[in-house]
Design a protein around this nucleic acid. Structure first.
Lengths: 203, 203
DNA sequence: TAAAAATACTTAACAATGTTAAGTTTGTCA
DNA sequence: TGACAAACTTAACATTGTTAAGTATTTTTA
């Protein structure tokens, strides 16, 4: 049995070699910079070898997306340590934006790019991404219980809050923020604060 | 002089022929479907002729983006007729989302795609897009004056509200909304209402 | 242990793409 | 009419994703 086990290991190792090279190229210069031939050159195999491990280029990006989600989820869930739900809520939002701004490639892969989505046949395959969303819903529920947020449909509230942070993140990443450089970060933080604060029951 | 005027006219006509064909291909099947050769075939000229009117493919998309902004602005400003500022505010938001959902290609071109932005050297060139943004700021100012919105930095408020509607729109357009089909529209409307309502001074 | 079979990989080629260089046709004006 | 410029085309280039066919290498079988 050990021999087929080793083969299994080798296969996974090769897959990772391909994925890591692809990710490196992608993060360095974006989607167009990832060509099968460049990956091949990097790993010192012929281009066609890659097709023995991945059906096509889209499948590579689909897998890179999953990797990005792993990173992302890990980062998001760090805020779970925070006891106070209100403080946790704000930290969650800040962490989200911070991740997006500091890892624009990952964020693009997860929430903006078309390529990895084509490969995605059913919502179940997006499960990697659902973990953070469930975490958000859980937090919202808690904030409604302590009356910090008004009682509303949780699905609506969760989607709203996701939209709100995603809006900020994707305007930054796709370079639609034409504000003076030094003002930009201030504006991002300001918007996050403004929006998150608005949501609470004021009295 | 009339002869060079006619030439000028012909040139513009040809440019429009190219642009309209490109737009048609783009709206029908997206960016990848727009190839120089396909445009050429559609207008019954050789592919290289296109390069006599546009520097490269990016320049075509940059121009398509401007066209999209024209359409978009026109639609947005229709809400200016509405007298009541609060009603106008909500209508503006709804119009924004409606435009995005009904014209995903245009929206993508304006606010999501990378391609047209590469060509864009200075913010001034984005002026087409700024018109609606100024309109938004004007409306916000009015809502602060009548104390419907709390007094805050107008730049922060405008960017926040833009982010919020853009978030909804871009999640829909880039297919990150994995909710049952029939529930989707309800959720979009719900989120818009929830977020817009949250913004006001509750008392 | 030698032949057969499966596995891992490569070479060569395909069609499609954006783009350029060089040429040809057409129109304009002296 | 003949020179010149404008409008357009042909042919080619390099780059891309992908496939078909082949060659080594390793494993299995007899």
């Amino acid at each position: 049995m050990s021999i087929s086990e080793r083969k299994q290991r080798d296969k996974i190792e090769m897959e990772n070699l391909i994925l890591n090279s692809a990710m490196e190229l992608f993060l360095k210069e974006g989607y167009d910079n990832v060509t099968i031939r460049k990956i091949a050159e990097k790993i010192e195999y012929s281009p066609t070898t890659i097709y023995l491990y991945f059906k096509d280029k889209d499948e590579i990006f689909f897998t890179l997306q999953k990797m990005a989600f792993k990173e992302f989820n890990k980062e998001q869930l760090k805020t779970a340590e925070i006891k106070d739900p209100i403080e946790r809520f704000f930290a969650h939002g800040k962490t989200y934006i911070k991740f997006a701004v500091e890892n624009p490639g990952y964020y693009d892969l997860m929430f903006i790019m078309n390529e990895p989505v084509r490969n995605l046949k059913s919502p179940e395959e997006w499960q990697d991404g659902m973990s953070s969303y469930d975490y958000l819903k859980q937090n919202i529920k808690e904030l409604m219980e302590i009356k910090y947020l008004p009682e509303t449909d949780i699905e609506v509230a969760a989607f709203s809050i996701w939209s709100l942070v995603h809006g900020i993140a994707s305007l930054v990443i796709r370079r639609r923020m034409f504000f003076p450089e030094e003002y930009r970060n201030q504006l991002i933080d300001g918007a996050l604060m403004y929006l998150f604060s608005s949501l609470s029951n004021k009295n």
